[in-house]
Amino acid sequence: MAEEKDGTPSYEQAREELSEVVRRLEAGGLTLEQSIELWERGEKLAAICEEWLQGARVRLAAAMAQREDPGPTPEAAPF
């Protein structure tokens, strides 16, 4: 699970950390300030995950479109 060059965590890293944030918030026992900081971190991680998923959707759609319309076949190309 490598971090991207710009410091953005990979999808898997962000999801894992987000799960930890949720676990800590659900466990309770935090101060209000700690809870707010964790909540804000969770929001950032959720946005990172959504960006990765949106990018994956775009790539998948492009691959599916290419598969459905592969372009002219060699036999159909004029000489």
Rank of each mutant, 00 (worst) to 15 (best):
A2P: 10
A2N: 11
E3V: 15
E3C: 11
E3N: 07
E4P: 01
K5P: 11
K5D: 13
D6V: 00
D6I: 00
G7A: 00
G7H: 06
G7F: 04
G7E: 05
T8I: 02
T8W: 03
P9S: 00
S10I: 07
S10Q: 03
Y11R: 13
Y11N: 05
Y11D: 06
Y11P: 01
E12K: 10
E12Y: 12
Q13W: 01
Q13I: 12
Q13N: 10
A14G: 03
A14I: 02
R15Q: 14
R15E: 13
E17S: 04
L18W: 15
E20G: 14
E20I: 04
E20W: 07
E20N: 14
V21S: 05
V22A: 03
V22F: 07
V22M: 06
R23C: 00
R23S: 11
R24T: 13
L25A: 02
E26W: 06
E26H: 07
E26M: 10
E26A: 11
G28W: 01
G28F: 07
G29A: 06
G29P: 10
G29L: 03
L30G: 08
L30R: 11
L30E: 04
L30D: 07
L30F: 02
T31N: 08
T31F: 02
T31C: 09
L32E: 14
E33Q: 11
E33H: 03
Q34V: 05
Q34K: 11
S35C: 04
S35A: 11
I36N: 08
E37A: 10
L38W: 02
L38C: 08
L38N: 11
W39Y: 13
E40D: 11
E40N: 10
E40A: 08
R41Q: 11
R41S: 09
R41P: 04
G42T: 09
G42F: 04
G42V: 07
E43P: 00
E43D: 12
E43Q: 15
K44W: 07
L45C: 01
L45T: 01
A46W: 11
A47C: 01
A47N: 10
A47Y: 10
A47T: 10
I48S: 00
I48D: 01
C49Y: 02
C49K: 05
C49E: 10
C49D: 02
E50M: 14
E50P: 03
E50L: 15
E51Q: 12
E51M: 13
E51G: 06
W52R: 07
W52P: 00
L53K: 14
Q54N: 13
Q54F: 14
Q54S: 12
G55T: 04
A56M: 15
R57F: 08
R59Q: 11
R59G: 01
L60N: 01
A63F: 15
M64V: 15
M64S: 06
A65Y: 08
A65E: 14
A65F: 14
A65H: 09
A65D: 12
Q66F: 15
R67I: 08
E68W: 13
P70S: 01
P70M: 06
P72E: 12
T73P: 05
P74N: 01
P74K: 05
E75H: 07
E75N: 00
E75G: 00
E75P: 02
E75M: 06
E75T: 05
A76L: 09
A76F: 00
A77Q: 14
A77K: 13
P78I: 05
F79E: 14
F79C: 10
F79Q: 13
F79I: 12
